[in-house]
Design a binder for these strands. Structure first.
Lengths: 232, 232
DNA sequence: CGTCAGATTGATCTGTGTCAAACCCAGTGG
DNA sequence: CCACTGGGTTTGACACAGATCAATCTGACG
């Protein structure tokens, strides 16, 4: 599965970690990454699956992943998208539980794997690191809480606007206002939490209202202000 | 608002904390609670409100609270219920952000308030404490993720069964199988994430199917196994 | 008693999901 | 070079879970 490509060495990973953990002393990273490994994944591969035992956490060196749960009838619910510098898998390490999400690459990715023990030791050893981990966990927690309310209360139309803006914020826009991230309709609907057909109909609606324009998977945001209004 | 009642002294709060933070050294608690204060709340009072600045976190010494978000049209979405020994408010302290939830007492409560600085210092000072805080944050994160999927994918009927079982698990049952916690229909519907009328109709449905029995707000679980099945 | 919040039931409307069919387009192999 | 295939996309028709609105009922409490 994993194909031979030019992999960054650990020192490269250290600089990536430094962007995510800004207040952690240089010396910590060497210890944290002492037993780390770097692996390349092709688009569409699983990093780990729900309910599996995860032996460590992952830093996304490059690429994009989706983090999702699978419902009874196999329907995916995307919890969040991971981008360069993002950390995932730590929850199941900390809790010593099976993973509650699956992670799949949406593009070719390079991942740095840190054994669970290294992570726990770093938290124990370095208060600064522990603090940053708390920051990450608490940010995700706030996002999750907000999303619970949104899914429970907002109509799909509002959630779609919201997700488009979220993706724009996280991954940026081209000069012409197009999302740099081109999800399939299926993934987009699994993120919004609706049926693919409903999503497509709402996209057409948005097109008619000159809120967006589409070409294939490309989506250009034409009226961000009005989208914000719709997102509520 | 706060009425005079016999308040536990700090040493009592320490024993409550000890139950929540099992692996933290005795000496830590004294420092953590050096500037803590104990307050009694009557049923129906707000501890803090969404978007407000919270200056510390709270340990629920006794009583029950609901932790919820408020949607555009004022509709509440209960994220979770807090019971004796539960900690809340730490997210906004850690992130130095306004609260993303409101907390309101569902019964008379006694709360121990720990200033933000004390909390952060304890995390920095004691790896064991930092670890336990990570445990708490990560547990909530896992719960939140699961709940996102459930709300997005499961029909109300399944979620109702799930919430009934959740309440049974968290707060226990009387000998006759009745939930010890008696929420109003409104609160229950805000927890399940549906309209009050829909909730009531489903409760009647459950009654007809001999899954539960009700008398006023009391709900007796008659067939836990079948409820589990329905919850999926 | 009267009152008022909460609980219940009924009637109706509608946002979304589901099913089915058609379409588009890129890649494959004959 | 072109038919064939298959994944993803789009549109239409239809059904239904669940929301909303309105009316009545209950029970606790002053």
């Amino acid at each position: 599965m994993k194909e031979e490509v030019a992999l960054p060495d650990i020192s490269r990973c250290i600089s990536k970690f430094k962007q995510t953990f800004k207040h952690v002393a240089e010396a910590e990273f060497a210890k944290l990454l002492a037993d780390a490994t770097v692996t390349a994944y092709k688009k569409g591969e699983f990093v780990y699956e729900e309910n599996s035992r995860v032996k460590g956490c992952y830093l996304l060196y490059s690429g994009i992943v989706k983090i999702f749960q699978t419902g009874n009838e196999g329907k995916e619910q995307i919890i969040r998208l991971g981008k360069e510098g993002d950390l995932f898998g730590f929850r199941s390490v900390i809790r010593e539980e099976p993973a509650c999400t699956s992670v799949e690459t949406l593009a070719d990715c390079i991942l740095c794997h840190v054994p669970g023990r290294s992570l726990v030791e770093a938290i124990t050893r370095s208060p600064a690191f522990a603090n940053e981990m708390m920051q990450i966990a608490c940010r995700e927690l706030g996002d999750a809480n907000r999303y619970i309310k949104d899914i429970a209360q907002k109509p799909v139309r509002a959630r779609l606007a919201e997700i488009l803006l979220l993706i724009a914020g996280d991954f940026g826009l081209e000069k012409d206002g197009a999302l740099t991230l081109n999800l399939t309709r299926g993934d987009l609907s699994n993120f919004v939490g609706t049926a693919t057909e409903t999503l497509i109909r709402l996209l057409s609606e948005f097109k008619n209202e000159r809120l967006i324009a589409t070409r294939g998977r490309r989506i250009r945001l034409l009226d961000v202000d009005r989208l914000r209004l719709i997102a509520g």
